[in-house]
Amino acid sequence: MTSISEREAGTDRETTARRLLDSSEQLSYDPVKEVDWETPLDTDYHGASPEWSTLYGTSYWADMTPEQQRELTRQEAASVASTGIWFEMILQQMILRDFYAKDPTDPAFQWALTEIADECRHSIMFARGAAKLRAPAYRPRRFVVEAGRIFKATATGEAAYAAILVAEEVLDVMQRDWMRDERVVPFVRTINNIHVVEESRHMKFAREETRQRLEGAGWVRRQVNALVVAIASYVIVGSMWNAKVYENAGLDGKRARREAKANEHHKSMLRSSCSGLMEFLHSAGLLTKPSLWFYKRANLI
């Protein structure tokens, strides 16, 4: 017999899904038409806000020429985009697996397919954007790729949706800065604007799914999934800035990696970007003492 709380949760979920579907119908973009793919890359622009560079604020940054700084931010933007593609492919498979053989008349089912369609377009957009930035294919380390393969095949419930939320929240804060920054090349600003608008709906869905899946969850389940989400967050954030961006920007890779690792400014930027996320995880009971170790290692808290 279905309890009152379960019926109410189902109604809330349906209402949220319908609202997101309506929003998607009213405000969605076609990157093929919206992004200026034809104009050649103008190297007088950055690829991302300089303040988000892993070297910004270091002695190496001060030693670099403006041209080197701009090239580095372009390579770093391409690296972040490539990591986004990797995780969006994981996300799509987790959602498909979650909604496999469920009721197709359910608005949540229809929203799940809408989100997958969005992510497919985003991945193509990111791929074309990285190519236009004249960057190679930045991929996570082999171990991370294989760990992602296991995660996408096994993560369920709140572990899957909270991990999705982490990746989307970190990207969202960065891209809100980039899309408003006139120092950033215009086509990248357009890409960021599209992603921010459409991902806001995805984040709403991920929050609602996380809350719903946690209803009635016991202490052990919360502890285990809090740790899974924290480890996933550590891996995702650690993969955003590929170590090869420095050589590809014409820099001394060894010095760059050493100074980037110790860069307190960049760590501070990451922490500030995740304040809202950490509040949500805390309210959901997913910010436990063991999980804090991974968030601190990832400079998210």
Rank of each mutant, 00 (worst) to 15 (best):
V228R: 13
L165Y: 13
S272G: 02
M89K: 06
M94T: 14
W111S: 02
W111L: 14
A112R: 04
E76V: 04
E259S: 01
R207H: 04
F205Y: 15
E76R: 09
L287F: 13
T58D: 03
S3L: 13
L72C: 08
Q212H: 12
E115M: 10
P40H: 04
N193W: 10
K254H: 08
V144S: 14
A155E: 04
A108H: 04
R74H: 00
W178K: 01
D103R: 09
F126G: 03
Y100F: 14
E88L: 14
M269W: 00
Q69N: 06
L41I: 09
A135M: 04
T105W: 09
D177C: 07
A101Y: 03
L72G: 10
R128Q: 12
A230E: 00
Y295T: 01
P136C: 06
S79N: 10
V196Q: 08
W241T: 05
A17C: 06
I194V: 10
I85Q: 12
S82I: 03
G157I: 04
V80W: 06
T43W: 01
E208F: 00
A284F: 10
R70G: 08
F87K: 02
I164M: 13
V237N: 04
D252P: 07
V80R: 10
D44A: 15
M64Y: 02
Y161V: 03
A62S: 14
T43E: 15
E158S: 15
S233F: 02
A17T: 02
D30S: 15
G250T: 04
T54P: 02
A78N: 05
E259H: 04
M94I: 12
E8C: 10
D106R: 06
V197S: 11
P104K: 07
F205S: 09
V237R: 06
E247F: 00
A117N: 07
L281C: 05
H282I: 02
K102I: 02
R134V: 01
M179T: 09
D36A: 07
R121N: 00
N193H: 12
K261Y: 09
H122D: 00
A153L: 10
G285R: 06
H282V: 02
L292F: 01
Y295G: 09
S23Q: 15
D172M: 10
T54W: 03
E279G: 12
R271N: 01
H46E: 11
H266S: 03
K132V: 11
G276P: 03
M269V: 02
L96R: 13
E8P: 00
V170Y: 06
D98W: 13
K33F: 11
S200E: 10
A117F: 11
L165Q: 12
F294A: 15
K244Q: 14
A260L: 09
T2A: 12
Q69G: 11
K254A: 13
L227C: 02
F99N: 03
V188S: 05
A249S: 13
F280G: 03
W178L: 05
L227G: 01
T83K: 02
R142A: 10
I236H: 08
G129R: 05
R180P: 03
I95V: 15
G253R: 08
E215K: 09
V228I: 14
M269I: 00
S283N: 12
H266T: 02
R121W: 01
E247C: 00
E182A: 06
M1R: 10
R183E: 13
L287Q: 01
D12A: 10
D103K: 09
M64C: 14
A298I: 06
E199P: 04
